[in-house]
Simulated assay, not measured.
Amino acid sequence: MSQRFRTPRRVLAAAAATAALALTLAACGTDSDRDSGHGSAMGGMHHGTTSSPSASASAEGDGMASMPGMDAGSAGNGLAAAKGGYKMTSAVSALPGGKAAAYRFAITGPDGKPVTDFAVDQTQRMHFYAVRSDLTGFQHLHPAMAGDGTWTAPLAALRPGTWRLYASFTPGSGAGKGKGVVLSRTVKVSGTAMTSPLPKASGTTTVDGYTVAVKGAPMAGMAHQLTATVSRDGRPVTDLQPYLDTYAHLTAFHQGDLAFAHLHPETRAEGDHGGPTLTFHAEFPRSGNWRLFLQFQTGGRLHTAALTLHVG
């Protein structure tokens, strides 16, 4: 303001200085909140409005309410069934264990009607994730939508226990046009639930004969770059194929509350010769352990590598 409206009057100069000081103090307060876990920008979707999703998640009766300090950025942390006028609805609260099942749901808009217009994001109008409460189960699907706005996600067999199901989308019209949204609900899968401890934080993991190494030292509430390098038998892999318009798709979930983070790829996919190193823009809203699921494709086959990353 002081640069746009210069004036020799001492009164206005003093007022401008006071305003600048106030803004500086406000910014410092935001950083302090982030350091203490009470505010941030949502990892991977980086849009920065803040609110506590706990009440919204609890109000939907989904249980597993979010922990304090999780950001509800434009996309949100995925722990609420309703946000910004959009709501994930489903009559399904339980699924059978040990066999494939169809999960049906709808997204209603601010007007209360089912949304049928969705923008394409990474080749799909809807990304759907299923994650077990102990982070030992993960599925990433692209459900089909009927004309009335009902989506059907064909889930592979689920282990008994509690699962959180996420819908990630961008409205193609209406009040939320162009803004990413992540909503979720929980379901109980029948059978005897046996929990497993989360694997310790490690920079490497193997899947289908491939070794994936992730490097980076992310800090909560700050933007960082992560790199993932793919090798096989000690040799760099350079034949990664495009998957969802990129060479790898990376999502993360926080241990304990299952907050969602989508890490945006920075490597463009051009032909079937991706790798060995891929880069991602990462923003994690809070410290602790995050379970990363990196998906990449070779020879027409999709591979899903999982590892635990500690965020300081």
Rank of each mutant, 00 (worst) to 15 (best):
S54L: 10
M70A: 09
G98Y: 02
D71L: 07
K99C: 05
A75H: 07
K87R: 15
G97L: 03
A80H: 00
P68L: 02
R104C: 02
A80I: 01
S93W: 01
T89F: 00
V92Q: 15
A55C: 04
A101C: 03
G97Y: 02
G97C: 02
G61Y: 01
A91Y: 01
A82C: 10
A55I: 13
G61M: 02
S66Y: 01
G97H: 00
A80T: 11
A65N: 11
A55F: 11
A102Y: 01
G98Q: 05
P68N: 01
A81V: 02
G61I: 02
L79A: 07
D62K: 06
A82M: 08
R104H: 06
M67P: 00
A59F: 12
A65P: 06
D71F: 00
S90Q: 04
T89P: 01
G73K: 00
Y103Q: 00
G73S: 09
A81T: 05
E60Q: 14
V92N: 03
L79H: 07
G61N: 03
S93H: 12
A80Q: 08
M70F: 10
M67F: 12
A91S: 13
M88A: 09
G73F: 00
G97I: 03
G78F: 04
A80P: 05
A65H: 07
A100G: 12
A65Q: 14
E60S: 15
A55E: 11
L79E: 07
A81W: 04
A57R: 06
S74I: 13
S54I: 14
S54W: 13
M64E: 10
K99E: 15
Y103V: 00
A102P: 01
Y86D: 08
L95K: 02
K83F: 13
D71I: 04
S58V: 09
S74V: 14
G69H: 03
S74L: 12
A101D: 07
S66E: 10
M88H: 08
A82H: 13
G78C: 10
A94D: 08
S93C: 04
V92A: 10
G98K: 00
K99N: 04
R104L: 03
N77H: 07
A102T: 11
K83W: 13
L79M: 13
A94C: 06
S74G: 14
G98D: 07
S66T: 13
G69V: 04
S66A: 15
A72Y: 11
A101H: 09
M70D: 12
G84R: 04
A101Q: 08
P96M: 03
G84L: 04
A59M: 05
A75T: 06
Y103L: 08
M70L: 15
S74Y: 10
M67W: 12
A91R: 09
A75C: 15
K87D: 07
M64L: 15
G76V: 04
P96S: 10
G78R: 05
A81I: 01
A72M: 15
G69D: 01
A91F: 00
G78I: 08
V92R: 03
A82Y: 06
M88W: 05
M67G: 04
K87M: 11
A65D: 14
A57C: 04
K87L: 11
D71P: 09
R104T: 09
G97V: 02
A59P: 01
A82F: 08
A94H: 10
S66R: 10
A100Q: 05
A65E: 13
G69M: 03
G63D: 05
E60D: 15
